Amino acid sequence: QVNIAPGSLDKALNQYAAHSGFTLSVDASLTRGKQSNGLHGDYDVESGLQQLLDGSGLQVKPLGNNSWTLEP
């Protein structure tokens, strides 16, 4: 069960990665100043990332080996 409060997208993504045990490689300029609506409930990694990114204009991309990145 994930419980991440709304706020900074950077912070939300870092909390989610730490909670879910995956690696997220992101260029900080992509997420700077963006906000997230947070995340509450049970999600697989990709669904949770998509939910956190909702409205940010960013997309999640798998890199393999439980690693992910973001792209515009």
Rank of each mutant, 00 (worst) to 15 (best):
N37Q: 12
W68G: 02
L53P: 01
D27S: 08
Q51T: 11
N3S: 11
Y16T: 01
G33A: 03
G57W: 04
N3F: 14
Q35E: 10
L24S: 03
D44R: 05
K61D: 00
R32A: 15
D54F: 14
A28Y: 11
L39A: 02
Q59D: 08
P62K: 13
H40Q: 13
E71D: 05
T31I: 14
N14T: 13
G41C: 05
Q59P: 00
D44H: 06
S25A: 11
T69H: 07
L52N: 00
K61T: 07
S47V: 09
V26P: 05
G21D: 05
S56L: 09
D54T: 13
Y16L: 06
S47H: 10
S29D: 13
G7I: 06
S36D: 01
S47T: 12
G57Y: 04
L13G: 00
L39P: 00
K61Q: 06
R32S: 14
P72F: 10
Q50G: 07
V26D: 05
L30Y: 07
D54R: 14
L13T: 01
G48T: 03
D10L: 12
Q15W: 09
D54N: 13
E71Y: 10
A5F: 09
G48C: 04
G57K: 05
E46Y: 15
L30F: 07
H19V: 14
D44T: 13
L49R: 00
G64P: 06
K11V: 13
A28P: 15
L49F: 08
Y16I: 02
S25Q: 14
G64F: 04
Q51K: 14
P62S: 13
E46N: 07
D10Y: 13
L53N: 00
G38Q: 03
Y43K: 01
L9P: 02
E71P: 00
T23Y: 11
E71T: 11
R32L: 14
S36A: 06
L52W: 04
L58V: 02
N14G: 10
N65F: 10
N3A: 09
Q50E: 10
Q50A: 13
S29H: 11
G41R: 01
G57I: 02
Q15K: 07
D42V: 14
Q51C: 12
N37K: 14
L58R: 00
N37R: 11
L39R: 01
S56T: 15
S47L: 09
G41T: 02
G64T: 05
R32N: 15
A28Q: 11
A18R: 08
F22I: 15
S29Q: 10
S8K: 07
D10M: 11
A17S: 07
D10P: 03
D42K: 13
H40L: 10
K34A: 04
L49W: 05
A28F: 09
L49H: 02
K61P: 04
R32Q: 15
L53A: 06
V26E: 04
N65K: 10
E71M: 11
S29A: 12
S67V: 15
W68T: 02
K61V: 13
A17C: 07
Q59Y: 10
S20L: 15
Q59G: 08
L63T: 11
Y43D: 01
G7F: 00
P62Y: 15
S29Y: 12
K11M: 13
A17V: 08
S25P: 02
K34T: 03
S36W: 04
L30Q: 04
N66K: 06
N66I: 03
V45N: 04
D10A: 10
Q59C: 13
